[in-house]
Nucleic acid binder design. Structure first.
Lengths: 332, 332
DNA sequence: TCAGGCTTCTAGATCGTTCTAGTGAACTGA
DNA sequence: TCAGTTCACTAGAACGATCTAGAAGCCTGA
């Protein structure tokens, strides 16, 4: 039943209402300069015809698109939360969001090109993988905000979470519970793995404790493998690279007959939906995705509308203590 | 350092290359009708100026946008897999994808409007929540394909998975392992909950078994609550509404001292990433998201390019047996 | 030599809006 | 009464591309 008739234009509405195109334009975008009576007449005619303004033509004329391009990775459930928050914040600021997914078969650069083609006035890239130079090239066309990654050079804005502070809190939390034998299962080559690793080393040494680090990764499997290798030198607490790794660690500990948190405490990172699962209740470091997203949108809009130059915003994460951390066993 | 200079247009390139705008247009879109030498000259000039065609202007003129609008829900990790597959299929067919997220604060209708504003030639909606009438209204403007839901009326296309067949397979699998006391923990008011529920009832009765159904839901918590209520009449197998619910069920059973699958088998639905987690290895019914996505894109493109009328495609799911289903205990 | 047919290129209209610069009428206040 | 102001409205250019129709140049063959 699809009616393939040409969709109505301003011109059609103008004719139907017996006014000029310009006046219809004024009415349609709610601009001042039309009498209430005519306004109604025009609106009625528009509704009657099922008129829908052609955004391409509209945007072509009025250079502003009020569009923010946001790239995210479909592989990270965590990114979905950011998208949510970004929609809310963008909407509040009167901007629309153009989403671009990065998948295994669709490199970041392709996604960015698509976002620019849609007419994005600024780009927000979640954990961009491009080099600083490549990012700078895009940043010369349009403001670019890197989210969750801050080593992006000076041409690109960034909004990130303070990994050092996060790990410091994690260690502080565990030490204050009485733990001293703490192991960090790291993120391998994942983004943010390096700063968390060195933050752990620095903070443990500062406290005169031994910074034991085991190679891990970002997925459950990595946490499990690493957890299995704890074996003989079982610590009383583990700080995982992220929540998913932490889940793997917990599963591995369970299989080894260790109770969490009675025998071993496990702390995640990200405070993702996995951490919040009612049967998991994972203690975790929260980067507060909604706030980060809002900050990124803020930054992008400020860059579009003002003449501010690129800057780097760093937010402090916070600890969410749930049920996987507790005091170490008496003999520990 | 963002250079706020006006971005170059066809006109600029034409002047730089010493030719007409029309010729630059020809070269830029790779159309025939330009000599190789001039073609190079134009391309060089374009590269020199950093020219990037303005898609708004281009699309305004050439009605075709080659754009498919895809709406998904940020709350369902499952949807991300569909997005992935849709990107691949659309790309192969020469189409670009415009993504629209549906969140708690952003109703489906708003997302659809945005997708249409981008110039989508067709809409693919994952599990749309709008009424058939509302869908039909959009379908009168542009082809609409409903994905994962098929009761959408005749104006809208649909691509879905056969829930009856899926549940039939689930029961068949468990029965062939020797189970007879099978419980279905349903999806409450979730999409697809009803067909799965009645399919379970019908299939069990067909086999002369009692169709025990317990109220559940789509999340881990629901599965846990339902699992806890199994108590005294412990079955030997459970078919959960979906994987997340199944995870809750498993956790609940574990807490009650039941081993999975030695004492109780648990079967999920969706074959999501949760099911595939190495420490879960959940047996599940797979709807094969990539195939469904590809079919939906196919359908949308066929509708755009051909004159086919709306149709409903139903695909048969299949069983993925992992480690949570096995023969019932000897005494069972 | 010249009609006919390529190939290569161009002028100008066009897409559906918004924007600029106005027009004309009604209303003010001295 | 009349200059000044406000209000409602309009004509036509503009945005940056594509498309149509046609021109110019060159080759071909009779």
């Amino acid at each position: 039943m699809t009616e393939q008739q040409r969709r109505p234009t301003l011109m059609d509405v103008a004719e139907a209402a017996g006014v000029s195109r310009a006046l219809v334009s004024i009415v349609m975008r709610g601009a001042p300069g039309a009498a209430e009576a005519t306004r109604q007449k025009v609106l009625d005619a528009a509704r009657e015809l099922g008129y829908r303004p052609d955004s391409r033509a509209r945007l072509l004329r009025s250079t502003r698109t009020k569009l923010l391009g946001l790239s995210f990775s479909t592989a990270h459930a965590f990114h979905a939360e950011i998208v949510d928050a970004a929609y809310a914040e963008a909407g509040a600021k009167g901007y629309e969001l153009a989403l671009g997914g990065v998948t295994s078969g669709r490199p970041e650069a392709r996604t960015i090109e698509a976002l620019l083609d849609f007419g994005s006035e600024a780009l927000i890239l979640i954990s961009p993988t491009l080099s600083s130079d490549e990012l700078a090239r895009y940043a010369s066309q349009v403001p670019v905000v890197s989210l969750l990654r801050n080593d992006v050079g000076d041409a690109t804005d960034s909004v990130s979470s303070d990994d050092y502070a996060g790990i410091r809190m994690a260690v502080e939390h565990l030490v204050s519970l009485g733990h001293r034998r703490i192991v960090h299962i790291d993120g391998g080559s994942a983004v943010s793995a390096e700063p968390r690793r060195s933050a752990f080393r620095a903070e443990m040494e500062r406290r005169g404790l031994e910074p034991a680090i085991i190679a891990g990764g970002a997925m459950e499997e990595d946490g499990m493998t690493a957890g299995n290798s704890l074996g003989p030198v079982m610590p009383t607490a583990v700080i995982a690279f992220n929540d998913r790794s932490a889940l793997g660690v917990i599963e591995s500990l369970r299989a080894q007959g260790q109770r969490v948190p009675a025998d071993v405490s496990v702390l995640g990172y990200d405070d993702s939906q996995f951490a919040r699962l009612s049967y998991v209740q994972l203690s975790s470091i929260s980067q507060d995705a909604p706030q980060l997203a809002a900050a990124a949108v803020d930054r992008a809009v400020a860059r579009i509308e003002g003449t501010q130059s690129a800057g780097h915003v760093v937010r402090t994460p916070h600890l969410v203590a749930r049920r996987t951390t507790a005091a170490p066993p008496a003999g520990g």
